[in-house]
């Protein structure tokens, strides 16, 4: 065997390792769209929730509930979009959307995410509203870091960035919404665009 054949063997090994253990069809475009949803959602929430100068934010008010509903709606819409675009990409790659790698990716993503989600809801029920944005960012970041082992791309760095913004958000109370927009909006758009350009190249 010559050198080239060994090289070919090694790259085939690497490819099989990746393809069998990592979910490779995550769509970059869905990142961009999720970021746009987040910004629109936050703008709507801002419009509904934030009081005019001189009045206070009422957490029992209808407007506050509308905001919570908007944020949940943004999350669901993002997941649906990511699923739709990723399955389209999987079809193009001749991969199945639902196989061992998808299950592993989702389980590892959802464990920290659901933990965080339940914690935040319990917190809200106890009238602790202050750190909600920070907690959302931190738990989402941890979910991404945890899931990064099971997919390609640099989701890990997005996760670390989200955690950093979440901590910063906790250190600077009162700016929750702005950090939320930065983390869920702009970071997704930036990361999604980088991933999208990468997809176009290969």
């Amino acid at each position: 065997m010559n050198k080239n054949e060994h090289l070919k063997n090694l790259s085939e090994i690497k490819q099989l390792m990746d393809r069998s253990s990592r979910f490779i069809s995550l769509s970059g475009l869905s990142g961009i769209i999720a970021g746009v949803y987040a910004i629109i959602g936050a703008a709507l929430a801002y419009f509904f929730t934030f009081p005019k100068p001189g009045s206070y934010l009422e957490t029992n008010s209808r407007n506050f509930k509308i905001s919570v509903f908007i944020i949940l709606f943004v999350a669901v819409l993002s997941v649906v979009t990511a699923f739709f675009l990723s399955s389209r990409k999987a079809k193009k790659n001749n991969e199945k959307i639902w196989d061992a790698t998808t299950k592993r990716l989702l389980t590892n993503f959802l464990i920290p995410l659901l933990t965080g989600g339940i914690y935040i809801i319990l917190n809200l029920n106890n009238q602790h509203y202050g750190l909600t944005a920070s907690l959302m960012l931190i738990f989402y970041g941890l979910s991404l870091v945890n899931a990064s082992k099971y997919t390609v791309g640099d989701i890990k760095y997005l996760g670390i960035a989200e955690i950093a913004v979440g901590l910063l958000c906790a250190a600077l109370p009162g700016y929750g919404l702005w950090f939320w927009i930065l983390g869920f909006g702009f970071f997704h758009i930036i990361y999604g665009s980088l991933m999208y350009l990468d997809e176009k190249k290969s």
């Binding site: 063997n9 085939e12 090994i13 099989l16 390792m17 069998s20 253990s21 196989d99 061992a100």
Partner: peptide, 26 residues
């Protein structure tokens, strides 16, 4: 051999794999 090398590559990075999964990947 390409196929034996492939089987090993898949199994070292996965806890386990069933027959159909190997067949599909290789």
């Amino acid at each position: 051999h390409r196929i034996r090398l492939g089987i090993m590559s898949i199994l070292v990075v996965n806890e386990d794999a069933d027959f159909n999964r190997l067949k599909e990947l290789l």
